[in-house]
Amino acid sequence: MGKTIVIDPITRLEGHGKINIFLNDEGNVAKAVFQVPELRGFEQFCKGRLAEEVARITTRICGV
């Protein structure tokens, strides 16, 4: 089993991300996994809000 390279956090972009790169014995990439270690749940907490308020809630999904 080869080396694993972990890039955590991914920087210079908006948002949270993490990459695991698994190398094989020759040092080539065997598998690379990208993960987003964050969840806020807009899909759920927009339910029940007044329709006219949703615009100012969903603008906070991404503020960039």
């Binding site: 806020r40 906070r60 503020g63």
Partner: peptide, 10 residues
């Protein structure tokens, strides 16, 4: 940043 949208960085 923690649970945020990036607006504060902006």
């Amino acid at each position: 940043w923690c649970a945020s949208c990036g607006g504060c960085e902006e």
